[in-house]
Design a protein around this nucleic acid. Structure first.
Lengths: 249, 249
DNA sequence: GGTTTGGATTGACCTAGATCAACCCAAATT
DNA sequence: AATTTGGGTTGATCTAGGTCAATCCAAACC
């Protein structure tokens, strides 16, 4: 696993997951600058594994740029994605040695990491950070529950539409485009296979429903990855959610 | 919602969710006895709603006895359970005013509650508690991820078998029966409908798969709710999980 | 410039689980 | 004792999405 040399362009500074300046390369350390001493960056290229389920994981960290997926695989090969890590999302459990799921870079990924033990130490002495982590974990739990509704009760078309709105929302918030309503454009960070694993579908069904949405003019496709949504409200109407549904984030 | 008068028998003391003696009726308060002043109990009878999505929720708390479910409902009535609250599970977000899901008592339920604002106050000043809550929330997230695999990739039979092992495990840990291997007996805390909402199935499919498991001697049914598992390993083999899978708890 | 290669699409067909409908059964009601 | 009532079961049929197989297509590689 050859980690690339890493230069972090300024615009890649994201809102720090623990809401602390010291986690970003270009921010000045403040009273918790001890973090600087246990911080390092890791780069992964698209497709590369980040950790395997059962591995020791000697760091925790947050996604600075790129997208990673957490998946669970059954003995016969059936796979289900159980986490999608986008910029500002946190990876790892401070006080657990091994990791429970396979984590893989979906696109090129940059992680801002902290050595696990000192970070855990820090948590126990800094209420600020454990409260922030609790907040983030609760948000993740809410997202997981939306996801469960998608997996358990939505049709294939609704699943695709919901997935697209989730990506669109996160993409927009990354670009600081607060209000979504009109036309809108973004890139899919996942292959059709990864999308299928996200939604509990096959790649064929994903493909068919994508073309169906295209034929019904809900979306336009430019290549395989670039999506144009002429009317976000129209896409929302396909999700099966009541209007304001989904994650606020 | 007529809350019953509440007398809490001693054996119903469960391991406190925040690992703090003051949450149990029969335990002595300790250095954090301030909790006693904001603590109260609530009882709900089977079927009764505890909170509706969107309601103000002025308390947080943990399940002392009984089972409650969290569900999400789509406009057309499709329902998905997204949380199953068993004894020792925690309910509510300290710093969120409204609740995001319908919570309903599946059996008679006793909650040990704390007024939300003072409890939140306490968290911000007591790292002990927020760390414990973080731990619990992370466990809940792991459970949600197992659940996502069940919803997205398992067959109806595997779903039923997995659900039964989850209930069996929790029931056994409640009775302090550490090692599961041989025969085993427990009651289902849910109706067939609630089971269907748990697994993203219809009640008919749940019913059919239960009788299929019975005909294949994986389980025995005594009435509709009482389950006898002659060989727990045989049930595990039906879940699709690799041997040690599922939640450790 | 031809050829791998790997993701993506499309078509034909099949099946697990949904749907619709009848019936069961035990506990509560009168 | 008859009768609701509500959860549960069982059967017949239907269909959304899976499976299998062929083809497409653009980027990477000789």
């Amino acid at each position: 696993m050859p980690n690339r040399p890493l230069t972090l362009p300024k615009q890649d500074c994201v809102d720090c997951p623990i809401r602390h300046k010291a986690v970003c390369a270009h921010c000045e350390p403040d009273e918790l600058s001890v973090l600087e001493e246990i911080k390092f960056y890791k780069g992964f290229s698209a497709g590369q594994p980040i950790v395997w389920a059962g591995d020791q994981m000697e760091f925790v960290g947050s996604v600075v740029s790129g997208v990673a997926s957490m998946t669970q695989t059954m003995e016969d090969g059936r796979r289900q994605m159980v986490g999608l890590l986008l910029p500002s999302d946190f990876l790892g459990r401070p006080n657990r040695e091994t990791v429970a799921y396979d984590v893989q870079a979906a696109t090129d990924v940059v992680l801002c990491c902290f050595r696990r033990n000192p970070f855990h130490q820090l948590i126990t002495t800094t209420p600020h950070i454990s409260q922030r982590l609790l907040e983030m974990t609760l948000d993740e739990l809410d997202a997981a529950r939306e996801w469960m509704l998608l997996l358990g009760r939505k049709t294939a078309r609704e699943k695709i539409a919901s997935f697209l709105t989730i990506i669109a929302r996160r993409d927009a918030s990354l670009k600081n485009m607060p209000s979504l309503g009109g036309p809108l454009t973004f890139d899919l960070p996942l292959t059709r296979e990864a999308m299928a694993d996200y939604m509990g579908l096959t790649i064929e069904t994903v493909s068919r429903q994508m073309t169906a949405l295209r034929k019904d003019s809900v979306i336009e496709l430019d290549g395989k990855r670039h999506i144009i949504v002429p009317d976000f409200e129209a896409l929302l109407a396909e999700t099966g959610d009541d209007d304001d549904g989904g994650l606020p984030a």
